[in-house]
């Protein structure tokens, strides 16, 4: 089987899965552990990036350009989301003078 020999030389797809899972888990830990809303936002970006990278990896290994187009669109939406989210953060800070999420619990219960 000639593809087996070739498989030994390229980076296995599993490596990308492990790497992206680790990055995603780090992002989840960040969302759960941190109290600064800005750092939580950064952790969300990290999760988004790990998903993007895995999508691009599958696309490259499966020889399907649609995956990379989807990554492009996810980046577009992420850019819009960051602009709105940071505008919201600045506005919250302006009205409450904090971005500690334990203080911002008016909508929680």
């Amino acid at each position: 089987m000639p593809s087996t020999i070739q498989n030994l030389q390229i980076i296995p797809l599993d490596y990308y899965i492990f790497f992206c899972s680790a990055l995603f888990a780090i992002g989840v830990v960040g969302v759960l552990v941190k109290r600064n809303a800005l750092v939580i936002f950064m952790s969300i970006e990290l999760m988004l990036n790990s998903a993007n990278l895995l999508l691009a990896a599958f696309s490259a290994y499966r020889n399907d350009p649609a995956g990379q187009i989807f990554v492009f669109f996810i980046m577009v939406v992420a850019a819009a989301e960051v602009a709105i989210g940071l505008a919201l953060l600045v506005m919250i800070y302006r009205s409450t003078h904090t971005i500690d999420i334990n203080v911002l619990n008016k909508l929680k219960w």
Binding site: S3, Q6, N7, Q9, I10, I11, L13, A56, A57, S59, A60, Y61, R62, N63, D64, P65, Q68
Partner: peptide, 11 residues
């Protein structure tokens, strides 16, 4: 998978 990503041109 048998594809080598460094050889294909889709990216």
């Amino acid at each position: 998978v048998a594809n080598d990503p460094s050889l294909n041109q889709i990216g």
